[in-house]
Amino acid sequence: MKTILLAALVSTLPALAAAAERPAGLAAAEALARAALGPECTMNDMAEVPMAGPDDDGFGHFFHRFTYRAARQSADEPEIEAELYQLFCVAGAYNVRHAFVLKTSDEEGLRLLAFARPELDYAYADEEMTTLKAPPGVKGFGAALQLVNSRFDERTLTVTSVGAWRGLGDAWDSGTWTFRDGGFVLTRFEVDPTYDGSPADGARGHVVYDAAE
């Protein structure tokens, strides 16, 4: 698993190399996210959030364009054009959160996306929470309107997220969502809930959901 954890964030945003041009629909996407998420998406109270380039970390907004064919379409219909706004919502001590807003050529308006997430079931074997009684399981599913330390891969049309549960990064979770027929579907989720000081390299992670299985 390729893990990207932010060890620390400075209080001011750094200069973003090769910042992208601000897309025409950005203001509407920001307004939707702010209205829906309220204090959970303050955008760090910035008057204007900078655009980030493809190689930048999570500071700032990202904008992605791609096309796809919906299951309902016939072979002679043109592909649907999609605009994906990955909107910076808030930066904490070691995590950055983004919301995702989608605009497609076959729909009016914008959609704030929700990402399925498993509700985890586990118990610790010690008071220090360094070991588990048994491997973690899934007791249900919920949905998240923001993802932590997320990336979008335009080649595979997948979003990945890696969340550090504390600054050391020894406890974490990681998800992968794949774009299918107009939305993102959870395809893999992995977690290490132990605060044992081990490096966050995925070696100790437990895969609790894998669509390939």
Rank of each mutant, 00 (worst) to 15 (best):
V10R: 13
R69Q: 12
L145S: 13
P193L: 11
D170F: 11
A47M: 07
L186Q: 07
A33Q: 04
A164G: 15
R166I: 01
E154M: 08
D121L: 14
D45Q: 12
G182H: 02
E213Q: 14
S150W: 00
V207C: 13
L112A: 05
L113G: 01
L87W: 03
G25A: 05
A20Q: 15
P14C: 10
K133Y: 03
F63C: 09
R117P: 00
M46Y: 11
D121M: 09
S11E: 15
R188V: 05
W177L: 09
P78E: 08
A134Y: 12
M129S: 11
K139Y: 00
R155C: 01
D106I: 08
A93T: 11
D56Q: 13
G25L: 03
R204Y: 05
A24I: 10
F59E: 13
D121E: 15
E127G: 13
C41R: 00
E128N: 07
V148K: 01
N95I: 06
A99F: 01
R180S: 10
L132C: 07
E77K: 14
L145H: 13
T158Y: 04
A123E: 15
A7P: 04
Q86K: 14
A99W: 00
L32C: 06
E108S: 14
T187G: 10
F100K: 02
L5E: 10
L9A: 13
E30W: 12
V191K: 00
L87M: 07
A164I: 07
P39S: 06
Q146F: 06
H61T: 04
F62P: 00
L132K: 11
A123N: 10
D45C: 04
P23Y: 09
G92S: 14
R155N: 07
T130L: 07
T178L: 14
A31H: 07
P78W: 14
C41T: 02
A29K: 01
G53H: 08
R111W: 00
F141A: 06
T104H: 04
V159S: 01
D55S: 13
G53L: 10
D56N: 15
V208Q: 01
H206N: 11
L26E: 09
L186I: 10
G38R: 13
R97K: 12
G169I: 08
P23R: 09
A47V: 14
A171R: 10
T160F: 07
T187N: 04
E48L: 02
A99D: 07
A125L: 12
A164M: 08
V49S: 05
T104K: 11
R188Y: 10
G169F: 06
A71C: 06
R111G: 00
E81F: 07
A93M: 13
E77D: 12
D210F: 05
T158W: 04
G137D: 01
A31G: 05
S150D: 09
E21M: 10
Y85A: 08
T42F: 02
A144G: 05
V208Y: 02
A52S: 15
I80A: 08
L132I: 09
Y124Q: 07
R151G: 09
V101T: 01
R111E: 01
F189P: 02
A116L: 06
F88H: 15
P193T: 11
V10M: 10
G169V: 09
F88D: 00
G58D: 04
E108L: 03
